[in-house]
Design a protein around this nucleic acid. Structure first.
Lengths: 335, 335
DNA sequence: TCTAATCCCGGGAACGTTCCCGGAAAATGG
DNA sequence: CCATTTTCCGGGAACGTTCCCGGGATTAGA
C-alpha cells in the first residue's frame, strides 16, 4: 500500500523533484527526452500523483460544491449526474449536499462546503430568500457561485434559469385551445420563484384569451403528490372542480389526477391535466401526462461552464443563461 | 479572501503552532486555560482549519467513494442521501459516481476514486461479474470496500444485502393466496444476482404450493419500464397473458401494467401485479401497486458503519448484513 | 572568438497541518 | 530537600507537491 512519490522517481533517476514535477505538468522548460524518460519510469514504478499534495501546494481544492433541494427528485438527480460528468472530466470533484427544502439545512450545507474549501458553488436554492443575501454577499466578495433553476431573473449574480413564464403560458394556451373553459392552476409555494413565475405565465394566458375571472383560479399547494391529493379532496367537498388543471409540477399533477380518478372522474374527459418539469412517471400513468420538458442536462452543464469560467478568470462578468423547453402533449390534455 | 492559519494564531499569542494544533485536536498535553485562550482567539480571528493540509499530514483523504448504477433510480438516490448524511456527520465527504449499468464505466469510476485517494469504497455493482475479481483483489490487499445490495451472498467480502429470496417468496405467496392460478415472473437480467435471487424465491413458492409447470413461467426482461411494456406486447401477440405478474421491480411492473391497461385489460380483475423495491410512483398509479419495500436508509447506513469500522480498524473481520423488508399490499393484487 | 540569449535543470522555500522528541517547569513522594 | 514523575510546551521534521530563483551548458549573433 506504500505509495511511490515524485521523490522516489527523482532519486531513482538521479534528478531533481522539480524536473519530475515539470514533466508531469508539461511545462516548457524541460527537454523532450528527459520528460519522456520520466514519464516512462513513473509508469513503470506505478506512480500516481497525490492530488491532496497538489491541492495544498496550489491552494485550491479542485472541489465544487453542489447544493440541491432533493436528490430523489428526478430533476435534481439529473442535475447531479450532468455536473458530475462535466466537472469530473475537467479534473474537479463534486460534493453534493441536499437541503431537503429547508433553509436552515441549506445554509448549513453551504457553510460546510465553504469550510471544506470548495473552489466554487452551484446552488439550487429552496423556497424563501433568507439565505440569498448571504450568498450574494459571498458572491460579491468574489466567491464563485452560480445559481441554478430556482432563482429569480432579477437576481444580480450568475445564474442559469428556465423561462418559466413563457412555457407555462404555452402550456396554459394549449389547454385553452383544447376548449377547456374553466381552468385552475395548482401553484407551488408562493415564495418560490419558479412557482410564482409559472403562476404569472398562467395568468398571462388567461388574460390574453379574456377568461372571465370566475373561470380561472390560482390555488397555492406545494410541490408534492400528497399536496395535489389534498387539494382535490377540498375542491370536491366544495364542489369546485374545473375542466382542466395546469400544475406547478408533475408530482402535484399526478397526485391530483390520482385522487380524481379514485373518485370516479374520467381524465381527460371530465378533467384535463398538464404538468411541468417532466418526470419519468409522466408516461407510466393512465392517461399519460402532458408536461413541459426542460433541458436539464444542458442547463446543469451550462452552470458548470459559467462556474469554471469564473474560477479560472476571477473578474469575468456576471452571466445569465435562460433556457427554453418543449411541451410534450399526451393524452391527459386532449379531447 | 486570505485565510488565517494556525501560524497566525501562534504568532499572535506568541506560542508555538504545536500548541494551537493540540488545542484543536483536544490532545491531553495542554493546559485547560491555554486551550480555551487559543480557541477563543481563533474564533475571534476567524480561523477555520484547512482540511487539505490536515489530510496531507495525516495522509488520509477523509473521502469515501460511492459507486451506484444510476442516481435517478429512486432506490439509489436514497442510498446516496443516507450515506451522505451518515458520513458527513462522521467528518467524511462522499464522492458519488454512477456507472450507468455499464461495467467499463464502473471500473473507470472505481479507479478514478482510488486515484483520488478515497479512504474506502462502497459499491453497488452493475450486472455481470467482470469487475468483481478486481475488487476482491483490492479487498484482500486490505483496501476498505463494502458491497451494497447487488451482490451474491456467497461473495467473500463485507457486504450489505437484502433477503431477496425470502421476500420474493412472500410476494409470490401473497398472489397464490389471492387465488391467482397462473402467475408469471418478469425477471431482470439473468446475470444480476438480485434478479436471479428473486426468481429463485418465486420458483420456491411455486414448488411449495405445487403449481403445475404450465401455470407459471419466468421471463427474462430487464429493469426498465420500457422492457415491461415490450414483453407485454409479445405476450399479447402470442395470447399468453396470465392472471398475475410478479415483477423484478416496480419499473417493469409499471410498464407492463401500463401497456395492459392501454389494451383494455382490467387491473387487478383480469391481471394482478406485484412489484419490488417500492418506488414513489407505486402509490400514484391506478390501481396502486403492491410492492416489497426495502429498508434502504438502514441498509446504506449499515454499509457506512461497516466501512468506517474497517477504516479505523484495518484488521476487523469481514462482515455480512442481511436485511428484511415489508410487503405493502395495495389494490393491484387483491380481488 | 567573445558576448548575449536561450534552454535545462537543481536547490530549496512554501502550502498548513500533525506529530515525535526533548526539555523546562511544576507537582509528587519519601 | 532532593529525586522522580507528571504536566505542559516549543522546535522542527514530515506529508507530496508546486514554483520561484539562480546558474551552468548550449546555442545564436556579429
Amino acid at each position: 500500500m506504500k505509495h511511490v512519490t515524485i521523490k522516489d522517481i527523482a532519486r531513482h533517476l538521479n534528478i531533481s523533484t522539480s524536473s519530475v514535477s515539470r514533466a508531469f505538468n508539461n511545462k516548457y522548460d524541460i527537454k523532450k527526452e528527459t520528460r519522456e524518460l520520466i514519464l516512462k519510469t513513473a509508469e513503470e514504478m506505478g506512480y500516481v500523483p497525490n492530488p491532496i499534495a497538489k491541492k495544498l501546494s496550489q491552494n485550491c481544492s479542485l472541489n465544487i460544491g453542489l447544493v440541491v433541494p432533493e436528490i430523489i427528485n428526478g430533476y435534481y438527480s439529473k442535475v447531479v449526474i450532468a455536473l458530475q460528468e462535466f466537472l469530473t472530466e475537467k479534473g474537479y470533484q463534486v460534493l453534493v449536499m441536499q437541503s431537503d427544502e429547508n433553509e436552515v439545512q441549506e445554509l448549513k450545507n453551504v457553510k460546510t462546503l465553504i469550510n471544506n474549501m470548495v473552489d466554487g458553488l452551484i446552488i439550487a436554492p429552496t423556497a424563501g430568500n433568507k439565505n440569498t443575501s448571504y450568498y450574494i454577499e459571498k458572491y460579491n466578495e468574489g466567491y464563485p457561485i452560480v445559481f441554478l433553476n430556482r432563482v429569480s431573473e432579477t437576481l444580480k449574480a450568475s445564474k442559469v434559469i428556465f423561462n418559466n413564464i413563457n412555457w407555462s403560458f404555452f402550456a396554459t394556451e394549449h389547454l385553452i385551445k383544447q376548449q377547456y373553459k374553466k381552468i385552475y392552476h395548482l401553484s407551488g409555494y408562493k415564495n418560490l420563484c419558479v412557482s410564482s413565475e409559472r403562476a404569472q405565465g398562467f395568468k398571462k394566458a388567461m388574460q390574453k384569451y379574456n377568461f372571465p375571472s370566475e373561470n380561472y383560479k390560482i390555488i397555492e399547494t406545494g410541490l408534492l403528490a400528497t399536496e395535489g391529493m389534498n387539494i382535490i379532496e377540498k375542491l370536491i367537498s366544495s364542489d369546485d372542480i374545473p375542466n382542466a388543471f395546469f400544475c406547478v409540477n408533475d408530482m402535484v399533477a399526478l397526485g391530483a389526477m390520482k385522487r380524481l380518478k379514485d373518485k370516479g372522474y374520467k381524465i381527460p374527459d371530465d378533467v384535463a391535466f398538464v404538468g411541468f418539469t417532466e418526470t419519468r412517471t409522466a408516461e407510466l400513468v393512465t392517461p399519460q401526462l402532458t408536461s413541459v420538458k426542460q433541458p436539464t442536462f444542458e442547463m446543469a452543464k451550462k452552470a458548470g461552464e459559467i462556474l469554471l469560467n469564473k474560477i479560472n478568470n476571477p473578474n469575468s462578468k456576471t452571466e445569465t443563461a435562460i433556457f427554453n423547453g418543449k411541451l410534450n402533449i399526451r393524452k391527459s390534455s386532449i379531447r
